[in-house]
Amino acid sequence: MRLFKFIAINLFFYALLKAPGLLAGKPIPSSVITMYMFFIVVTVLLVMTITDEGANELFAPLRSLLEDPSRSLARNILFVLLPIGAALSVYYSAAEPAPPFELRSAHPAPPGAVRAYGKAYELDGLENPLRPLEREDPAAFKEMVREGGEVYFRNCLFCHGAKLDGRGHYAHAMDPLPMPFTGSDTIAQLKESYLFWRIVRGGPGLPREGGPNISAMPAWEDELTEEEVWKVILFIYDYTGNRPRSWKD
C-alpha cells in the first residue's frame, strides 16, 4: 500500500528527529522539528507523485474512503474521529501552559560608536592596539597575554569558567548561561572591537534584541582599564586557539 508507505517513511524521519531528545537528553527543539517535518512530508509527497500512476495509487485509498458508497461506515467513523482528535490535541496543548519561547540574539548588531573611558570609539575601524605586537615583538606579546590571563582569572573566571567554557562557579545560577569562548561559534565569529564593546558596556549596553535586561554581564568600564580590556581580549583568543574575525586578510 503506497499510502502506508508514505506514512511509514514520514514516521521514520520523525522518530529520527526525536531520537536525540529521548536517547541522549539533548532534544531537538520543537520549533525546528516542526519545520523539518513540514519539508520532509512535502518532499516525500513530491517524490511519490512524480508519475501519474504513482499519484493515483497514493491517493486511491483516500479517494475511495471519501467517495466509495460501500465504505460509508468507515467514512462516518473518520468524520467523528477527526474532530475529536483535533479537540484532544488542542486540549492537551492548552492544559499544560508552556512558558513563552526565549527570543534572544546572542550577538546583536553593535552600535557605530561606543562611548567609554571618556572617549568615543568608532567600532568600525577599531583594532586591538596590542595585536600588532604579535608580529612585531612576540616576547612582549606573550607577556601581554599572560597579563591578560591575570585579568581574566581575577574578574571573568567566576562566570566564564577556568577553561573559558562558560561554566564558572556562578554559571549554573544564570539564565542565559555565560558565553563560552571555546568552540568556533562565539568569539571566532567576531572582531576584537565587538568584544571590546561587549566587555566595556556589558549587559546594560546590549540592544533590545539582545535582551539587555536578562544578561548579568557587568559593564567592566568601571573596573578595568582600557589596556586591561585589550589584554584580556588577547588572552581569551590565545587560550582558546581562536583568531579574531577579520575581513581583510
Binding site: 520549533s31 519545520m35 519561547f101 527570543l103 540574539s105 540592544p207 533590545r208 534584541e209
Partner: peptide, 9 residues
C-alpha cells in the same frame, strides 16, 4: 507567526 517577532529598536 513562526519566526521570532523581533522588533528593531
Amino acid at each position: 507567526f513562526v519566526i521570532p517577532p523581533i522588533n528593531p529598536g
